[in-house]
Design a protein around this nucleic acid. Structure first.
Length: 493
RNA sequence: GGGCCGUUAGCUCAGCGGUAGAGCAGCGGACUUUUAAUCCGUUGGCCGCGGGUUCAAUCCCCGCACGGCCCA
C-alpha cells in the first residue's frame, strides 16, 4: 500500500538488526522511572550533587528526536508523563548497544538506563549506559515542529495525534480527572453507582431517534438506549433511593461540533428531593470540579470568561421569552401570536404542534445562545416534559430546569413524575404526537407505568452531558476534541 | 439536507493554463554537550477520484468521495 522509499529504508534497517541478532519486539525490560518523576525529583539538583548519586535510573518510551554528532547524540524520549533528554555516547555504551542506536529511527520505542547529569547548558539528562530497542516503528512520525494538524488524520489516527500533540494528551488526562471527581462527589453524597441496559426493547427516557439492532437468538429487535432514565427510576422504586450512572447514550441524529451519536452522560436520582435541591447540588458539583481543576471558579471558554460562583441565575422559560427573546405577554399566552412570532424568528414549526413546544422552539432559536454565564432555566411546559412532575402552582408547567453555560445545554433535571395515572396520560399524549408524525415522541411503556404503580418515592433526577462539560473545562470548540474516537464516515477503499 | 471552504512529498505548507517547490523527516558525508543542533550533498509526487473544455489541466468547468465551518 505504502511502498515508498521511506518504508524501504526502514525495512532494510530491520533486516540489518535481525541479522545482528537483535530482537525487534522484546518484552523483558521494565522502566523503574518516568520522565516527569525524574525531572521533578532531581530538577533542583546541581551537577555536583547528581555526580555523587550512586542511583541508576531507567526510562522507556518513544524516541522523539535525535541530535547526533557521530560518536555521541542527544535524544528526546517521551513516555506517558512527558519528555526527557538522554545522552548517547560511543565511549559509554557497549559497542553492540551503540551499533543498535545507529540503526534506530525517530518513532522507535526504546529503553535506556544510566545515571543523571547536567549538560553544558544545564539540562538534566539521563546518560545511557545501556540502551535497548523495545519496538521498531516502520512509519515516519508527523513533523516535529508543527506536529499533526490535519483534523481528519488526527481523528482517524488518534495514536499519531496523541504522540505528536501534548495538548491533546492533556485534554484526555483532564477528562479522566473530571470524571473521577464526579464519581468522588457522588460517592461522598452517598449515591450508589449502577449500570443499566444499553440495549433496550423500547428506547425511552428522552426525546430522540434511536439506533436499532437485533438479537438473533431471541429474534427480537432492540434499541441502543437514548437515556438510562426509566431503568434508574425502577431502581429508585426498588429502594436504592440514590443512584447514578456514568455511561454512553446513543442518539441517531446529526453530527456537529456539539453532537456525537454516542456521548457520555451522568444521570442521577435523589429521593426525597426536588428539582430545586438539584440546583444547589449541581452548583456544588461544578464548584468542586472547578476548584480541583482550576483552583478557582472562573475560567475562559472560547473567548468568554465563565464565572461559576454560586448562586447561579435562575430564570423561568416565561421570563426568558419576555426578557431575552423580547416577546410581549400576549405573544407568549396567545397561541396564534406565538406561532406568528416563531415564524418571524425563523423556527421550523407546525401549526399543530402543542403551544408549549412552539414556545420552546422560540427559546432554542433565540434565547439559548445568549445564556453565557451559568443559568438555570426553569418551569418548562408540560408538553415537552413527559416524565416531569407538574408544578403545584400551575398544572401546565413542570418542576424542571435546564442548565445553560456558554449558550449550550449542559444539564437537564426535574422532579420526577411518580403519579402512575398522570404518567399513563402523558404517554397517551406522546402517542398522539407520534401518530401525528413526530417519530421522536415518547413510546408508551406499560412496564414502566406498572413499576410506578408500586409507588416510587418523591425523587428528583438529573442528566449532565459529560462531553460538553469536558469541552467547557478544556476550552474545546468541538465535541470531537474531547472524544478519543469521534464517529466519522468510513472511508471507501 | 443546504451554503461556503479545503484535499499538492511521510508531515507542515507554497505554487500555477505550458509535465511540480520549500521546510522538517529520510538517505550519504563531517561532527563527543545539542535544544526545531549545525554544515555539505541528495532521494522522494496518479497535485483526492472520475468526466469535460483546451494544442496543453495540479490549475478552468461538472460530478463524486472525504473532511472542516456555518445554517436547518
Amino acid at each position: 500500500m505504502e511502498d515508498n522509499d521511506l518504508l524501504k529504508v526502514r525495512l532494510e534497517k530491520i533486516a540489518a538488526l535481525k541479522a545482528a541478532g537483535v530482537d525487534l519486539y522484546p518484552n523483558d525490560a521494565k522502566p523503574q522511572n518516568t520522565t516527569a518523576e525524574i525531572l521533578e525529583g532531581f530538577g533542583g539538583k546541581d551537577g555536583e550533587s547528581l555526580a555523587r548519586l550512586t542511583e541508576k535510573f531507567s526510562l522507556a518510551g518513544r524516541l522523539m528526536a535525535i541530535r547526533s554528532f557521530g560518536k555521541a547524540a542527544f535524544v528526546k524520549l517521551q513516555d506517558r508523563k512527558g519528555q526527557m533528554q538522554c545522552y548517547i555516547a560511543k565511549n559509554i555504551l557497549s559497542e553492540q548497544d551503540f551499533s543498535i542506536f545507529k540503526k534506530l529511527d525517530i518513532g522507535d520505542i526504546i529503553y535506556v538506563s544510566g545515571k543523571l547529569f547536567r549538560t553544558k547548558t544545564n539540562e538534566l539528562t539521563l546518560e545511557a549506559q545501556t540502551l535497548r530497542l523495545m519496538a521498531k516503528s516502520i512509519h515516519p512520525l508527523p513533523e516535529k515542529w508543527h506536529g499533526l494538524t490535519d483534523i481528519e488524520t488526527r481523528y482517524r489516527q488518534r495514536h499519531l495525534d496523541l504522540i505528536s500533540n501534548p495538548a491533546v494528551r492533556e485534554i484526555f488526562y483532564r477528562r479522566s480527572l473530571i470524571i473521577k471527581l464526579m464519581r468522588q462527589f457522588m460517592d461522598n453524597h452517598d449515591f450508589l453507582e449502577v449500570e443499566t441496559p444499553m440495549m433496550q426493547p423500547r428506547a425511552g427516557g428522552a426525546v430522540a431517534r434511536p439506533f436499532k439492532t437485533h438479537h438473533n437468538a431471541l429474534d427480537q429487535d432492540l434499541y441502543l438506549r437514548i437515556a438510562p432514565e426509566l431503568y434508574l427510576k425502577r431502581l429508585v422504586t426498588g429502594g436504592l433511593e440514590r443512584v447514578y450512572e456514568i455511561n454512553r447514550n446513543f442518539r441517531n441524529e446529526g453530527i456537529s461540533t456539539f453532537h456525537n451519536p454516542e456521548f457520555t452522560m451522568m444521570e442521577f436520582y435523589l429521593s426525597y428531593a426536588t428539582y430545586e435541591d438539584l440546583m444547589s447540588l449541581t452548583e456544588e458539583l461544578f464548584v468542586f470540579i472547578a476548584q480541583n481543576v482550576f483552583n478557582g471558579l472562573s475560567f475562559a471558554y472560547q473567548g468568554s470568561e465563565i464565572d461559576l460562583t454560586p448562586p447561579w441565575r435562575r430564570l423561568s422559560v416565561n421570563d426568558a421569552l419576555l426578557q431575552i427573546a423580547g416577546m410581549e405577554p400576549a405573544d407568549v399566552s396567545d397561541p396564534a401570536k406565538t406561532i406568528a412570532f416563531a415564524r418571524r424568528v425563523g423556527c421550523d414549526i407546525k401549526e399543530t404542534d402543542p403551544h408549549g413546544k412552539i414556545l420552546m422552539a422560540i427559546f432554542d432559536e433565540v434565547v439559548e445562545k445568549k445564556l453565557i454565564q451559568p443559568t438555570f432555566v426553569t418551569q418548562y411546559p408540560v408538553a415537552v416534559s413527559p416524565l416531569s412532575r407538574r408544578s403545584n402552582t400551575d398544572p401546565e408547567l413542570v418542576d424542571r430546569f435546564e442548565l445553560y453555560i456558554s449558550g449550550r445545554e449542559i444539564a437537564n433535571a426535574f422532579s420526577e413524575l411518580n403519579d402512575p395515572a398522570d404518567q399513563r396520560e402523558r404517554f397517551m399524549q406522546q402517542l398522539k404526537e407520534r401518530e401525528a408524525g413526530d417519530d421522536e415522541a415518547h413510546e408508551m411503556d406499560e412496564d414502566y407505568v406498572r413499576t410506578l404503580e408500586y409507588g416510587m418515592p418523591p425523587t428528583a433526577g438529573e442528566g449532565i452531558g459529560i462531553d460538553r462539560l469536558i469541552m467547557l473545562f478544556t476550552d474545546s470548540a468541538s465535541i470531537r476534541d474531547v472524544i478519543l474516537f469521534p464517529l466519522l464516515r468510513t472511508r471507501q477503499e
